[in-house]
């Protein structure tokens, strides 16, 4: 059984922020990652602060400027909400490709973005860097599911299937905290391990991700391609979210954001450059897919991911073309 904790279910966001600002407090959204981590003693919680009483974070509100998606919207709702399956299709596909049907019914968009990594050393009984230890065990160890990109010194991959689509779609994340609210670009929400080795994002004590805003962009097309070792219920070995603004038969703007290969959603800027200003023909697509792998630094067990990545980007671009 999970170790004992105090449980609080605040009725307002302000109360939730105050409770979460105290040491040892952990936020409970859908609870699927939290309970798994507590059971496996990845971390402990003195207090679990349930956000389930905050109904204002469960809504999706369209506006002329875009779509406001509450952080407590379930992955199943995100996957099936019609307006998301239009220009924001990459997000709907990412949400639909995450986890299993049961977890999508329970897990939230905010929770999916804030979940802890799946590295087996981090999840196992290893005092690794991310848990405050001295060593990354993956670097010299079993690293077939680890990163191709990133500065180290920790080689996790970000586990979310919605993070890369949101970076591709240039989403904005709204954060509530003790000092008020702030908004950050999706890309700036995630942090690399050379800056913060024990955190995956910029949230400080007491801060809660409350809303994801998807800006409307004329001519925007997007898709997400995920490669995993079986057809369902698995994390990405490699993936690609692509968002293109196409005008007059040419790519006016491109974002190619990789999943499953870096500690954060990883922008493949060389691929974006290879697409911008071009018509989306097979030669351009192949060149962009090749460019997406530029700078990959495989370790002893994960070089196979380079090929998967190239294929994922190529398939995503073909799906749009």
């Amino acid at each position: 059984m999970i170790s004992s904790f105090t449980y609080a279910r605040p009725k307002t966001l302000q109360e939730a922020v105050e409770l979460l600002a105290k040491p040892g407090a952990r936020a409970h959204a859908g609870g699927t990652d939290l309970l798994g981590c507590l059971r496996d003693e990845v971390f402990s919680a003195e207090k679990v602060v349930s956000l389930s009483g905050l109904s204002e974070l469960k809504t999706i509100v369209p506006s002329p400027l875009g779509l406001h998606v509450g952080a407590l919207t379930t992955l199943a709702q995100v996957a099936s909400y019609k307006p998301i399956s239009g220009m924001y299709r990459a997000l709907a596909e990412g949400a639909a490709a995450a986890a299993s049907p049961q977890l999508r019914n329970q897990g939230t968009l905010g929770g999916n973005l804030c979940q802890r990594p799946r590295c087996w050393y981090f999840r196992g009984e290893f005092s690794c860097l991310r848990k405050g230890g001295e060593t990354c065990y993956a670097y010299d160890g079993e690293n077939q599911y680890h990163s191709l990109f990133g500065p180290g010194p920790c080689f996790i991959v970000h586990p979310s299937d919605t993070a890369s689509p949101l970076v591709a779609l240039e989403a904005k994340f709204r954060i509530a905290g003790p000092a008020g609210t702030r908004t950050v670009d999706a890309e700036a929400f995630f942090v690399l391990p050379d800056a913060e080795v024990q955190k995956e994002n910029v949230l400080k004590a007491g801060e809660i991700l409350t809303e994801v805003f998807l800006p409307a962009q004329a001519g925007l097309l997007s898709t997400y391609r995920k490669v995993r070792s079986r057809g369902a219920w698995d994390f990405a070995l490699a993936g690609a979210a692509v968002a293109l603004v196409v005008a007059g038969g040419k790519v006016a703007k491109a974002r190619v954001v990789l999943s499953g290969v870096a500690p954060v959603p990883w922008r493949a800027k060389k691929a974006e450059e290879a697409l911008t200003g071009k018509a989306l023909d097979p030669a351009v697509i192949r060149a962009a897919a090749e460019a997406a792998t530029a700078g990959a630094q495989p370790m002893s067990g994960n070089a196979y991911k380079v090929d998967l990545l190239r294929g994922a980007v190529e398939e995503a671009l073909r799906a749009i073309a």
Partner: peptide
Amino acid sequence: LIDGAARYACLTLAVE
């Protein structure tokens, strides 16, 4: 099923 949708009871706190 919780409110008609399939979920895992092992990852759901009873208080929730």
